[in-house]
Structures are given as C-alpha cells and as structure tokens.
Design a binder for these strands. Structure first.
Lengths: 222, 222
DNA sequence: TAGATTGTTAATCGATTAACAATC
DNA sequence: TAGATTGTTAATCGATTAACAATC
C-alpha cells in the first residue's frame, strides 16, 4: 500500500506553468476552464494537460471542465506551496539581493531569513529587514532557525564547500546559482539555475533561426 | 543539399553543460578525454555523449577519444560563442544589475551596451561603464547600435509591450526574466528564465524526497 | 435528455541506451 | 600489431498524442 507512482521530471517541469496560468485566470475571475481552452492559451495539447493532472488525481468533472480556483489550490499543494520554508541566501551580491527583494516568493511560503557574505562592506547592512551576516554565524543561524533552503549566489569556487557544510547542518534543499554541479551526499535536493547555460541556448537558437531565414531568402552561408 | 537535420531541444539543453565540463578540463590542462571518462564525471551515459556530439559531426578519434581543446572550441562554435552580440538590459533593478556585472558573459561574446529604466533615481547612473538610460531613448539606441539581444528584467505587466517594440526595432532574441510567456510574432528567439517556477520545482522535489524518507523510516503521513 | 468534457487506455512518436563494426 | 574507443545502427524505453467510453 502507499504505492507512490514516480512522476517524471517532464511533468514536474510543467506543473508550475499550469499554476501560473491558473493564477492569471483566477485574477481575471474565470471560474471554469476546459483542458481544450487551457491548451489553446498555453500552446500544449489538451491530452497532455489531462495526462499530467491525472498523475495526481481527477481534478475535473466530465462535461464541465476544471474549476479554476480548486485546481489552482490543488496544484499549489502538489508543489508544496501550502507549506512554509525558511530560506537563507549565501552571497549578498546583486543576484542575492535581487532574490531577497522578490516579494512574490514570500507570498508562496518561502520566508527569507538572512543573507550571508564575506565582504565587510555589506555585513551589518540589511535588505527589506533581513540582516546581512558574516559567514562565521552561518552554522549557528542554520541550526537555530530551522533553515530548510539555501540559495547559493556566490562564486563557484566557494559553492561546493559551503553546500556540503549546509547539508551537514540540516539544510534540505539548495537553490544553486553558481555555475557548477554540486555533488552532495545525503538526501538533499539541488535545483540549478545556470544563467550562462541559458544564454548559450539563446545564442544557439538565434543562429539556428538565422540559418533557416537564410534558406528561405538569399543564402549567404554555404 | 544543405539539408539541416533538426536538433532536438533535449540535445541543445545539454550542450552548454558539455561546454562547461570541457572548459573545466581545459583549465586543468587535460588534453584528451574519452566519452566513458566524461560520462563518469557528468553522470550521463557515454552513449548519450557520443550521440549528442554526432548530431554535429565526428569530433573524436577511434582508440583515442576526444581532444579537449578541439571539442571545446567546436561546441563553442555550435553554440554561437565565436560570434559577438550587442546586448541591452531593460530594467536596471537588482536583477538587471546582477546580469550587467557578470563579466563571464562578456568573455563569451555577449557585449552589454546599456541598461534602461523608468526610475529617475537610477537613470543617469552607470554600471561598469554602462549607462542607465531612460526608456525614451530605447528605440534610437536599439536601431543605432545594432542591438541583437535584450534581457528583460522588468515587471511582467510591462514585458509584453516592451518585447514587441524591441522586435519591431530589430532585436532578434529576448532573454526573458519576467514571469510571463511572451507571445511574439515574427522570427524572434525567446529564452525564459522563470525563477519562481524553478523555486516551485525545488519545493516539489523537497517534499517528494521527504515522503520517500518517511516510507523508509517511521511513517508520519498516511 | 443531449452535449460536452473528463479520465484513461491504446497508438504513436521520439529519445535514450546498448551493441558492435570500423578504425585509429 | 593489439587494444581502445569512436561513429552508427538497432533495441529499448518513456513520453506524447489520439481516441473513446464513462459520466456529469
């Protein structure tokens, strides 16, 4: 019993996007939506939407569709947004400060508790009420404040060592912005945001798009 | 002739990661590497590496493996990193400034030319030599400076309108950080960085990991 | 009720992995 | 040469799409 079907990463990647579209519909006071209507907005197939949702249960009703508000809240629960998380940011540079300033995250239950840095110029300052603390206080802060998540916005040379310390002190998830893969032991979730890789995909696709143009019009490449 | 096989998005997603690992090897003065050795480092199959690379040509040598320096440079060319791009940033908040400060991007040919904002407090200031200009100058700047890429680090309410203006003025690619999907007409490449979605995947995976723990040890959930 | 739309099974498509002949 | 490792074909696996009975 308690068999949990393993959900594929492809499905998980799409869930937050459904959540965003449903939130937008909710703001527009849309009460119900069918998989077909949603599929047109999101430019995916209605089949995929129904398949994805049915991994987690039947949220719709035949002949009616889905209740927007109910589905929104159910997907929120699936994503764990009904819970509250204590988050710290390691590295109080621009990126760390950008994240600290995102009030949208707080609304979804991600409570930022402090930032940490090694630079004496920023230590002692505060951002939206959050203190920037020295790294020497990291261990005690993590242990005393039940920190679940750490965002790593520091140079890649420091990321690995800091991450394994954090895990040993009880952190369960790392939101990694450093351009490196963290090889951590133990049960810890790592979510990478590799901006450089994103920009490279952009330039690849730009050049691929231009090649296609060239073929249509005058071909300047061989 | 000139038949270009369509490369799948899955392959493109992996290419920058290969590039990063090869760059790391290059820094350690590693001269050659086999697909098997690389597969162990990267935790993918050797088969996948060879399949992926052979979409673009045979870069290796039987019995030897791949020359690190050569493969690095070839993947760079595939990704379009041998070219130079003129980039602007729309929205000079913390995220915009964080991107403007990343010197790594410049090294790969992405030349940041200016930032734009509506806030009089930041207009007129400069970041690493780049001016923060008012939005009123956006059109002329884009047209006169051959801007290829625009990073959108502004509120989602503004993103759509600004993006379609940019495209009409000649911008070929949008690096979109606003939490919305841009529906643009014409041939423009959009690469999204949706931080909120990334954080939601993290929380999903955190909770999925905890459920698994529960099953192994004492089960506190039903 | 009749029409609409889900939940779900079956069919298709594509991506990953395995295997091995070619060859350095 | 013998050993190693690629490039590539074939086999497998998984994800997406299509179809439709169930049912609101």
């Amino acid at each position: 019993m308690c068999e949990e079907k393993q959900i594929s990463a492809a499905v998980i990647r799409r869930l937050p996007r459904y959540y965003r579209y449903l939130g937008d519909l909710l703001e527009k006071d849309v009460v119900r939506i069918s998989s077909r209507e949603l599929s047109e907005k999101m430019k995916v197939t209605a089949s995929q939407i129904r398949q994805d949702l049915n991994n987690f249960g039947g949220f719709g009703q035949q002949g009616y569709g889905y209740n927007v508000s109910y589905l929104y809240s159910e997907i929120g629960k699936i994503l764990g947004l009904d819970k509250s998380y204590n988050v710290i940011i390691i590295g109080a540079g621009h990126l760390g400060q950008a994240i600290a300033n995102y009030t949208d995250f707080e609304k979804r239950g991600f409570k930022f508790r402090a930032l940490f840095d090694i630079d004496p110029k920023v230590i002692g300052t505060s951002i939206r009420g959050m203190d920037v603390l020295p790294m020497s206080q990291l261990e005690s802060f993590v242990k005393e404040n039940n920190i679940n998540i750490a965002a790593l916005t520091l140079p890649k040379s420091k990321a690995g060592a800091v991450a394994s310390d954090l895990v040993s002190w009880g952190v369960k998830a790392i939101w990694n912005f450093a351009p490196t893969d963290l090889n951590l032991s133990g049960d810890v979730v790592v979510e990478n945001v590799h901006l450089a890789e994103s920009l490279m995909r952009l330039s690849y696709n730009m050049n691929a798009a231009e090649s296609k143009d060239g073929r249509k019009g005058n071909i300047s490449w061989s």
